[in-house]
């Protein structure tokens, strides 16, 4: 059943269009895929002339909350995961996104926008793994 108290169709759609506009700008202006895991991963594999745009993009992400606060009060997030779970999750996300060449932005948004079968396969895979994981944590373990 649908969780109507938390479902935010309009702000999520609007935010999605803003994300898609950012993706469009990076593709057209910089000729790059806005895949966050790939952009961070490239910093860990330094190449001459390839660092400035990556660091600038990451810096943009970091200052987004401060910029947002100039216009509206951000909603407080709820983070249920404990510190040990966050450590395990971070390791899996870091290694997995690099091994699988992309995350929710690189494969999910950019790949699906490009109609890439490879990114569609990746997106289905991580979505299914996410569904199974949350099912196990929420409905089997407790």
């Amino acid at each position: 059943m649908i969780d109507w108290t938390h479902f935010t169709p309009w702000s999520s759609l609007a935010g999605g269009i803003v994300i898609g506009t950012a993706v469009a700008m990076l593709a057209l202006l910089n000729g790059r895929i806005a895949g966050v895991a790939g952009i961070i991963g490239g910093v860990l594999r330094p190449a001459a002339g390839d660092m400035a745009w990556r660091l600038a993009f990451i810096f943009g992400l970091l200052v987004a909350p401060a910029a947002y606060r100039l216009f509206a009060a951000p909603a407080a997030p709820t983070i249920e995961a404990s510190y040990p779970v966050l450590l395990l999750a971070g390791l899996l996300v870091g290694a997995g996104t690099r091994y699988g060449s992309g995350c929710t932005s690189g494969h999910g948004v950019c790949g699906l926008s490009r109609l890439s079968p490879r990114s569609l396969a990746a997106t289905i895979t991580f979505m299914l793994a996410g569904f199974v994981t949350v099912y196990a944590v929420r409905h089997l373990l407790v």
Binding site: L91, L92, V93, R118
Partner: peptide, 15 residues
């Protein structure tokens, strides 16, 4: 692609 996606999905679901 598939193994990386699986690992990422598990971490994503956990955190």
């Amino acid at each position: 692609l598939i193994l990386g996606g699986l690992a990422f999905g598990v971490g994503w679901g956990l955190a």
